[in-house]
Simulated scan of single mutants.
Amino acid sequence: MRRSGVSVGAGVGVGVCVLLAGCSPGHDSTSYFPLAPGARWTYSVQTDADGAASRQQQTISVLDERRYDGKPLFIRRSETPGNIGIEYWLRAQPDGIVRIAQRMDLEEFAALDPAPRTVLKLPLAVGASWRAPTVPYTVMRKNEYPREVKYGRGMPMTYTVEALDEKLTVPAGSFAHCARVVGRAEMTLFTDPVRGFNKVPVTTTEWYCRGVGLVKLERLEKLATPFYSGGSVLMELVEYRMP
């Protein structure tokens, strides 16, 4: 099936007002999700899956500002050595950050999301919640291929702001004024012949710090059955640069 796609010319630059920045250009020291072009974050990502641990670095950067459908958007790129890079089309709206499309390096055009996908609801307030689709990161089949369960299996995750103004320390340093956002989902799997189908909890905890953005992420997919194994992901900020 051919995916519908759209393209934005790289040379189309516009002086837009970043909604989170109170209409001031450049970096905003109060934003929990900076989108200023030139911003760059490097993370250490430790994955425990299938009984083995691995560590790699992931880099996220804001490439530029563009315009699509008469409205501004920001191109945010994620890169991991040895994997395909992905560009995300993000918009800063009064009610939060939303994703409207994505493009992998092997694709000529970006594929529009069926509907805008909330990345972070704003303004942040304890108890605020939203839903967005996700896939399992570390759940593996033991005796079937493809072993990764994430292919073709999506599930809705409910995110809730559980705390504001927390402090935490990661390799990039110590940070204050951080929001803790917890995502919870359930994945239905045939775990074994005795128990049959069961709901497996999936949890993501994210910390967003003012003026920096995402500083830490923990993903838990605990599962050990005759047919499946689970694991965890720990993502911590190593260094960052703001324009």
Rank of each mutant, 00 (worst) to 15 (best):
M1L: 14
R3L: 15
R3I: 06
G9S: 15
G9E: 12
G11T: 10
G13W: 04
G22D: 07
P25M: 12
P25H: 13
H27W: 03
D28M: 04
D28V: 01
Y32V: 03
F33S: 10
P34C: 05
Y43D: 10
Q46D: 12
Q46K: 14
T47L: 06
D50M: 05
D50K: 07
D50W: 04
A53R: 15
S54A: 13
R55D: 13
Q56C: 08
Q56G: 12
E65Q: 11
E65W: 03
E65C: 07
L73T: 02
L73G: 00
I75M: 14
I75F: 05
R77W: 02
S78T: 14
E87S: 14
L90C: 01
R91F: 01
R91M: 13
V98Q: 00
M104Y: 05
M104A: 14
L106R: 09
E107A: 12
E107Y: 02
P114I: 10
P114W: 01
P114E: 13
K121R: 15
L124A: 11
G127Q: 10
A128N: 12
W130Q: 12
T134E: 14
V135P: 06
V135S: 13
P136L: 11
M140K: 12
R147I: 08
E148G: 07
G152N: 08
G152H: 06
G154L: 02
M155K: 08
P156D: 15
T158G: 07
E166V: 08
T169G: 03
P171N: 13
P171R: 11
G173K: 05
A176K: 11
A176L: 04
V181C: 05
T188H: 10
T188C: 07
F190R: 11
F190P: 01
P193C: 09
P201G: 15
V202L: 15
E206Q: 11
E206H: 07
Y208H: 07
Y208M: 08
C209I: 06
R210T: 09
G211I: 04
V212M: 11
G213Q: 05
K216Y: 01
E218S: 14
E221W: 03
A224Q: 11
F227G: 01
F227E: 11
S229G: 13
G230Q: 05
S232D: 08
L237E: 01
E239Y: 07
Y240K: 07
R241A: 14
R241V: 06
M242L: 10
